[in-house]
Amino acid sequence: MNMLTGATGRVLLEARSVSKRFNVGSRIVPALRKTVHAVDGVSLQVVRGETLGIVGESGCGKSTLGRCLVRLHEVSEGEIIFEGRDITRLSRRALRPIRRKIQMVFQDPAASLNPRHRVRDVVAEPLIIHEFGTHSEIDARVVELLRVVGLSADHLERFPHEFSGGQRQRIGIARAIALEPDLVIADEPVSALDVSVQAQVVNLFQDLQERLGLTYIFIAHDLSVIRQVANRVAVMYLGSVVETGLTEAVFDHPAHPYTQALISAVPVPDPDRAHRGRRILLKGDVPNPAAPPSGCRFHPRCSYAQATCRDVRPALTRIGPHREVACHFPLV
């Protein structure tokens, strides 16, 4: 964790109050028009070499945030700073050299690989786009990349549908690391995989980070995965970050009631350690993001909620080194 100390100069990517709104409902009748704040004023920093885990329930905006950070979605407000440069409104052309430094791994490896392309073409695509070298150089590099992710040259001429889910995700990873990016944004990269295969792919991510010095933003709803890979976590609820901190600290002493509830819901495989009766059940469902609750977004489901929580929205406040929480009554 020493990489995090006094490291402002080594911030690789920074999100400054990034918001993403989607218009839903009628385009013609204004009364039926609604705006969904999928991402609502998120500020984050990713330090070179670390893994930032982003967790939250499905629908909390973590995938949208990830897609905003790679400019797959245009952000509605805020800035995205990469290596000290504002890339929020760069044109596609100006963005191209930056594209090779930020890559993405997608959730569903079956959907993120074009079924008409052979593995060779999939992995060579980034190399061709960014003019890596001659044909034979690209061929050699593709074979090398396949080896790195645990596949072999035998797989070159095969099609995605001939692989298992885990192998497909390896192909997606090979494509993402082909250009030796600085930052890889992994959007739920293992949640579509069998549990037995998840561990292998997670190990591959960690192995690659060590070898290539990658920085990850690892988006997941599975807390045990996040706990294993992330140095730091950001917990999202309804489009906003409610808590950030070093993984150990957040998992051992959650400061936000929502984080506490999330962590208490993780099944513990050891019956002796299983927290009997300490499980916090959240009341109700995630509110409709088109009509979020007043004040603290979490107050209708929070067992600690008080009158202020209904009226005043808590800001993300620093409560310790590397620790921020958006709660009027933090638990630590």
Binding site: S112, E125, R175
Partner: peptide
């Protein structure tokens, strides 16, 4: 809107390349 076109955009492919390589074959 498919993921593999998103992946292609992430790789920095031009519109023409996406049309030719990802859309047209399908």
């Amino acid at each position: 809107r498919s993921d593999f076109v998103m992946a292609s955009i992430c790789l920095g492919a031009s519109d023409l390349r996406i049309l030719r390589r990802e859309i047209l074959p399908n």
